[in-house]
């Protein structure tokens, strides 16, 4: 065929042989015992040489160590519909990102590492721009995230609906809220799709905690943080959906208890 190519190949092969022979001699002279040792080990083990055994054992130990991370504390966070059973979600979620991708309103977000290593990349809800309406507009009230979840980390129990599935509860931080300075803001009240808010005699909004399902509509329209100069010191919006603990109590972040509150 191509005689030039053949020539090349032959030269290359010869070189390789020479190199191999040189290496063999070197190995024989310098490290006879070690070479023999590992040879024996692999012959005895039949399957593995010593180096892969060490590497594999080390890797397996690292995997077990990573498993121990479950004892490192993680912050409670709000979960998309079907993720209310926290233990199930953590044990089943493979962090495949499918729920973030499918969410038509882009409210599902990967949890940040700040909420714990174990929580990182599991789904949470981010109500900055929009809220969760259980895909009523987009999929007739059947949440797409729970539908597509391949591992049933998000799975709606039988009989779950938008009203009885409690994502969290909205809580107003009154000293960051414009309405509590009698400015007359009532965006959250107007946004609430479930009549879970009322106005008092001074037109200040209040959350009807019993009705609130944590959909986030109020949080998504709250203007307090955009007007930071008015609500000085604010680090979050004045109305935010907070997760519940196992007993159903609202878990409030530190800014509710810290000084300056």
């Amino acid at each position: 065929m191509d005689s030039e190519k053949l020539q090349d190949t032959r030269t290359e092969a010869t070189e390789a042989i020479e190199a191999a022979e040189a290496e063999k001699t070197a190995a024989a002279g310098a490290s006879q015992p070690t070479a023999e040792g590992s040879e024996v080990a692999s012959a005895e083990g039949g399957l593995l040489d010593r180096r892969s055994l060490m590497l594999g054992a080390g890797g397996a130990v690292v995997m077990l160590g990573l498993g121990g991370l479950q004892f490192v504390g993680s912050e409670p966070i709000i979960r998309p519909p079907g993720g209310q059973d926290e233990d199930r979600l953590v044990s089943a979620c493979i962090r495949c990102e499918k729920c973030y991708e499918i969410c038509p309103r882009n409210v599902i977000a990967p949890t940040h590492i700040e909420a714990g290593i174990l929580n990182m990349r599991t789904p949470t809800l981010d109500f900055d721009d929009d809220y969760c309406d259980w895909c009523t507009e987009e999929n007739g009230g059947d949440p797409l995230c729970a539908k597509v979840c391949p591992t049933t980390a998000l799975a709606l129990p039988a009989g779950a609906d938008v009203l009885n599935t409690i994502i969290g509860k909205a809580v107003i931080k009154e000293d960051w809220c414009l309405a509590y300075r009698l400015i007359g803001c009532r965006f959250c009240y107007d946004a609430c799709p479930y009549e879970a808010m009322t106005l008092d005699e001074n037109n200040r909004p209040h959350v009807l905690t019993d009705i609130c399902n944590g959909c986030g509509a109020c949080e998504s329209v709250c203007v307090s943080l955009q007007n930071g100069s008015i609500s000085s010191g604010a680090t979050a919006r004045a109305i935010v959906v907070h997760p519940l603990d196992e007993a159903g109590q609202i878990i409030l972040p530190s800014y509710f208890t810290g000084e300056g509150a």
Binding site: A60, L64, L66, G67, Q70, S91, C93
Partner: peptide, 15 residues
């Protein structure tokens, strides 16, 4: 190791 760890500690560790 990763599957054993998942079974012991209750979450998909390798992920």
């Amino acid at each position: 190791g990763s599957l054993l760890s998942a079974a012991i500690f209750g979450f998909p560790v390798f992920c």
